[in-house]
Design a protein around this nucleic acid. Structure first.
Lengths: 177, 177
DNA sequence: ACCTGAACACCGTTCAAGT
DNA sequence: ACCTGAACACCGTTCAAGT
């Protein structure tokens, strides 16, 4: 699973090969089909594991009692770390691009990733104690989209500095509190 | 070229097949290799054509004498139209995700797309006549990244409404003037 | 229960052979 | 100059056959 995740983040869903993966874990490609009948089933499992991992991680930040600015800093650092790790793109970002050729079960997990991120950001925004009339969920979605875009653009240029610069501009403009 | 572009925007670089493309244009796959020796050469040509097309289109907006707000509205509408057209992603956005498995010549065109967009947005921002001390290029890059991210998230959900909502939030927050 | 080799229809690429 | 069929090593998937 771990080897498969790293491959997808590196080369995309299309770049994930049963034969290569089998070689990496020391069995034959047909054997992987015993556990994951189709590539879609494998992709779904990888993605589900990814969402759960980061849901736990982000939950930990809030349980640690971080304030709004600190929590959002930790959040943007997550996407930064992914870039530092072999110029990788967020797994869901990778799959979102390939959406139109993904099996339905993998698409569903990509949507789950976005919803998990938005829910978490909305909770963090609420920490500010600002007006309750504010549309926190919409604002959270915009932050999620903007950060994802910053990662994608920096990934395309293979320069972490681009990510840092763009995210800093988001903060300066007030999009990210 | 047109058929190839639509396929890449729909299914990604990996989803583009010489055999399928040949079928679409009525020749054999080996014949395409006569014009484009490798898939990288074909990808480069598609991408270059794409950048030039939109460079002309955006240039036209400025020559038409649009003011800042109008020009930026037309800009975000370009990405919106792409989503409406079969839930397609911007060609460069598609390729940026697949970056790590792209041939070098295609990567270079993806970077060229970003630079073209940033230059144009910076010129539009200057129309505002605001302080010259402002870092227009950095701001332009942030807008480009944010709009690209909005398109990607909306693409992953297959909902144009998500794009509209996120871009509206960018405007409300002041990121996009 | 878990693994495998062999087959199937796909893929990009090459190349000798055609007009 | 332009096109083609055939071959090569890849791909996901299936399945009968092994332990």
């Amino acid at each position: 699973m771990e080897a498969a995740r790293l491959t997808v983040q590196d080369l995309g869903y299309g770049g994930l090969s049963f034969r290569e993966l089998a070689k990496a874990v020391g069995i034959k490609s047909a054997s992987i089909h015993y556990y994951f009948p189709t590539k879609g089933a494998l992709g779904e499992a990888i993605m589900r594991r990814y969402v759960e991992h980061y849901a736990r991680y982000l939950e930990g930040i809030l349980e640690g009692g971080a304030d709004r600015a600190t929590a959002l800093r930790r959040y943007t650092d997550v996407f930064r770390e992914t870039l530092l790790n072999g110029n990788r793109l967020c797994l869901a970002g990778m799959l979102a691009a390939e959406r139109n050729e993904l099996p339905a079960e993998v698409r569903a997990e990509v949507v789950a990733w976005g919803e998990m991120n938005e829910r978490w950001i909305a909770r963090v925004l609420a920490l500010g104690g600002a007006a309750g009339a504010e549309d926190l969920r919409g604002r959270a979605r915009a932050i999620f989209a903007a950060v994802s875009g910053a990662q994608m653009v920096a990934h395309g240029r293979h320069e972490v500095a681009v990510y840092d610069e763009v995210v800093a501009t988001y903060r300066a403009s007030g999009l990210i509190p």
